[in-house]
Write a protein that binds this DNA or RNA. Structure first.
Length: 738
RNA sequence: GGCCGUUUAGCUCAGUGGUAGAGCGCUGCAUUCACAUUGCAGAUGUCGGAGGUUCAAAUCCUCCAGCGGCCACCA
């Protein structure tokens, strides 16, 4: 044995050994199943992925305690995320999504993802993950698309899906609407304009939406304005005089500004709700390209921010601005992806009614059918489920599973807006009837199709749900499902049919806490809806991996630790252990090179204990064992007793998922009790040929190796094979937990 | 504004009613010894603050403050 454990010398050989000898597959025994949270197909490993180690520890521990543990991997197409990355690549070539029809764009992204996928699995293997890679599932695999489409069909049939014109947060840059979870709120200073508005003065940060005002609201109990309620007022505006109704609504805070609010249902979520309550007209003045439309008169065609400046100047000229508060602080909703201001706007969307679906989820959590570790996430989950609104599932991007809907288009077709490229690659936009009347064929439109937006409500065209095109006179819905709509069905598409009998619900779901609401909630929801049972029993949430000071890693801060660098330098075992050592369960994980180095030193300590025993074993194999002297006997007895106690403690910790505590105790025992104390005490006896003591040392040592194997698989397996032969595996060992 | 978490050594963090702990860093000593990626010894703490419960509180309770997370609202 070398005087040092050189991880790089063993890791590949050991992993290949596991792979070639079927250790990635489950063995006989009681089933135990973990589904890997699918990373983005085109991702490469970052520090956060390191936490998948937790799942691997559980898989290995369960294997050693006699379970047929199985870890099924997969990758996610990550719709919005991936298209965003791809569009950035396009932009480098001075192109944009608008240059391509949707089919071409889809194919291009598909190729892009294909070129970049596979890397993360190679990296996972480097970390030693015992996953059954042959069973990998991609969320755009045929059977997944079919399953997800069937779910949609069933939900439509059961009345759980509706289309509606709904105010959504729309990112004019990314070109799609976002769910509430995908928006970010930031605090910002913006000017608050006090506008003269007929008999009133009112405060707004968005004067450019005033062309879409369809009411003015005051608080019902506000005495100042009581006389105006339900009356029309005449307002002098930039486009001349107009009349607008005064309504009373308790959303108005009489102490804010002047206590008067303009209501713009088309461009503000609150105003939209208010508008619904008072049955107000909806006047859209901003198009989804972020520009004002013809209702804005001379300002039509201007982008929102430009228009705002111009409008303010013009209002000032007309003397319609009373004052401007330049230091107004408020929170603004921005796109979580590109950081730009979101435009609340009304576009047709597909929605899932969640009221009926979320109830069983809440019950299951309350009944403890799904447990959360750490416990605080149970409360967080429940409080979020309570306020959960209907889920807008349509995204106006191409990278994803298309909503399998086809609109019937006949001679009288209308109420369907289309964006399409003609033969000359020129983008056309408008109601489909306009094009058909001008002699353009449906085929021409579909071959260059970018987007379809069908009206809702009474104007909604008829449609059929089908994966295949039902006929020549149909136009496909171009919206795709929200990524979480498909990944939410992950537990329902990863197992083989026959496995649902004994591997479902699965046992453990270890994932990052920041997708608790996006993903975990939806998986439970879909599973309860479709399978009438929860998808997994225990959810283990780990927090963000941060740098040594607890600061989130980011390229701009320059504090990113590359896991693969750490693995190459110090070994996979050291990197894995550094994510666990000295942390609280569910807290921030601080990663630093110092810590990885400390753990590398520990692997070396484990190795050298083995080296000591091994050297003496080969030397003393022919020496006849002596009678133990009393002191030596007492020490070995103590050692065995102490290890016995530790063993029970570790089992207890592992059963309650206290990985850090388990590893910490093993570290303490192996280094500071076994090596520093017992070996030192017994060294003389062993080196002078006391075989019996050496055997006891070896027995305890090998048992220790088994216990720590889930945490440090490579060094333990390497030593095991040196002691027991290169065809043996530590994974064949059994830890008796009873 | 609501809920949750957190505050312990220079740094990063464990600890849970009974003598304050680890890793890294620091100081001194040890070298043909399994390992210097080592060993031994040591320094550094009013355990955020104030009250309370208890024979006994870092640990349980109340209040306050700082930090963090989640949610809601912001014309």
């Amino acid at each position: 044995m070398d005087p040092r454990f050189e991880a790089s010398k063993y890791e590949n050989t050991i992993y290949n050994f596991w792979e070639q000898n079927g250790y990635l597959q489950s063995k006989k025994g009681k089933p135990y199943t973990i589904l890997m949270p699918p990373p983005n197909a085109n991702a490469s490993l970052h520090a956060g992925h390191g936490m998948y180690t937790i799942d691997d520890i559980v898989i290995r521990w369960k294997r050693l305690t006699g379970y047929a543990s199985l870890w099924i991997p997969g990758t996610d197409h990550a719709g919005f995320e991936t298209q965003y990355v791809f569009e950035k690549e396009l932009a480098k070539k001075e192109q944009s999504r608008l240059n391509f029809d949707r089919e071409t764009l889809y194919k291009m992204i598909f190729e892009f993802v294909k070129d970049n996928s596979g890397l993360i699995y190679t990296q996972f293997k480097k970390l030693g993950f015992l996953a059954d890679w042959k069973r990998s599932v991609f969320t755009l695999d045929k059977q997944v698309i079919a399953y997800v489409s069937d779910t949609f069909k069933q939900m439509v049939t059961e009345g759980l899906v509706y289309r509606d014109n709904y105010i959504v947060n729309y990112c004019t840059y990314c070109g799609t609407s976002l769910a509430e979870l995908e928006v970010k709120h930031i605090e910002r200073k913006d000017p608050l304009y006090y506008l003269k508005y007929g008999p009133f003065v009112l405060a707004t940060v968005r004067p450019e939406t005033k062309f879409g005002d369809t009411a003015v609201a005051v608080h019902p109990k506000d005495k100042r304005y009581r006389q105006w309620i339900n009356k029309d007022i005449e307002v002098e505006g930039l486009l001349g005089k107009f009349k607008v109704k005064v309504i009373a609504d308790s959303v108005v805070d009489p102490t804010f500004g002047t206590g008067v609010v303009k209501i713009t249902p088309a461009h503000d979520p609150n105003d939209f709700e208010t508008g619904k309550r008072h049955d107000l007209e909806i006047k859209k003045v901003i198009n989804i390209d972020g520009r004002l439309n013809e209702l804005a008169g001379p300002y039509a065609g201007l982008k929102v921010k430009v228009a705002r400046q111009k409008i303010i100047e013009d209002l000032q000229k007309k003397g319609l601005i009373e004052k401007i508060d330049e230091n107004y602080e408020h929170s603004v909703t921005v796109c979580y992806k590109c950081g730009r201001d979101l435009e609340p706007t009304i576009i047709p969307n597909w929605f899932i009614k969640v009221d009926l679906l979320k109830k069983p989820v809440i019950d299951a959590i309350l009944e403890g059918k799904v447990r959360f570790i750490p416990k605080k996430y149970k409360k967080q989950m429940l409080s979020w489920l309570e306020v959960m609104h209907d889920w807008p599932i349509s995204r106006q991007i191409v990278w994803g599973i298309r909503i399998p809907v086809w609109y019937k288009v006949d001679k009288n077709a209308k109420n369907i807006n289309v964006w399409w490229l003609d033969k000359n690659k020129k983008l056309n936009y408008g109601d489909i009837s306009k094009f058909l009347k001008n002699g353009i064929t449906l085929k021409e439109i579909t071959s260059g199709l970018q987007q379809v937006s069908a009206e809702t409500g009474s104007k909604q065209p008829s449609f059929v749900i089908s994966n295949e095109c039902p006929g020549d006179d149909y136009l496909p819905e171009t919206n795709t499902f929200d990524t979480w709509f498909s990944s939410g069905q992950w537990p329902l598409v990863t197992l083989k049919k026959e496995e649902y009998k004994d591997r479902f619900p699965t046992d453990f779901m270890g994932t990052l806490s920041d997708i608790l609401k996006f993903w975990i909630s939806r998986m439970i929801m879909f599973s309860l809806y479709l399978k009438k049972t929860v998808p997994f029993k225990d959810v283990y949430l780990w927090s963000m991996v941060a740098d040594s000071k607890g600061v989130k890693m980011s390229k701009s801060k320059g504090n990113v630790v590359n896991p693969i660098d750490m693995v190459n330098k110090y070994g996979a075992d050291a990197f894995r252990a550094s994510l666990l050592f000295g942390i609280g369960e569910g807290g921030t994980v601080n990663l630093s090179e110092d810590k990885v180095r400390a753990m590398r030193n520990f692997t070396n300590k484990i190795w050298n204990i083995g080296r000591f025993i091994y050297m003496n074993r080969s030397q003393s194999s022919k020496v006849i064992s002596q009678n133990l002297d009393l002191k030596t006997k007492k020490t070995t007895d103590e050692m065995e007793t102490e290890f016995g106690i530790l063993r029970k403690k570790i089992i207890k910790y592992m059963n309650s998922y206290k990985f850090s505590a388990a590893f910490g105790d093993l570290y303490e025992f192996i280094w500071h009790r076994f090596a520093d104390f017992y070996i030192e005490q017994l060294k003389e006896a062993v080196t002078t040929g006391d075989n019996q003591t050496l055997e006891t040392l070896e027995k305890v040592y090998l048992n220790m190796l088994i216990m720590i194997h889930p945490f440090m698989p490579y060094v333990t397996e390497s030593i095991w094979q040196i002691f027991n032969g290169s065809s043996s595996s530590i994974l064949e060992s059994k830890i008796n937990v009873s």
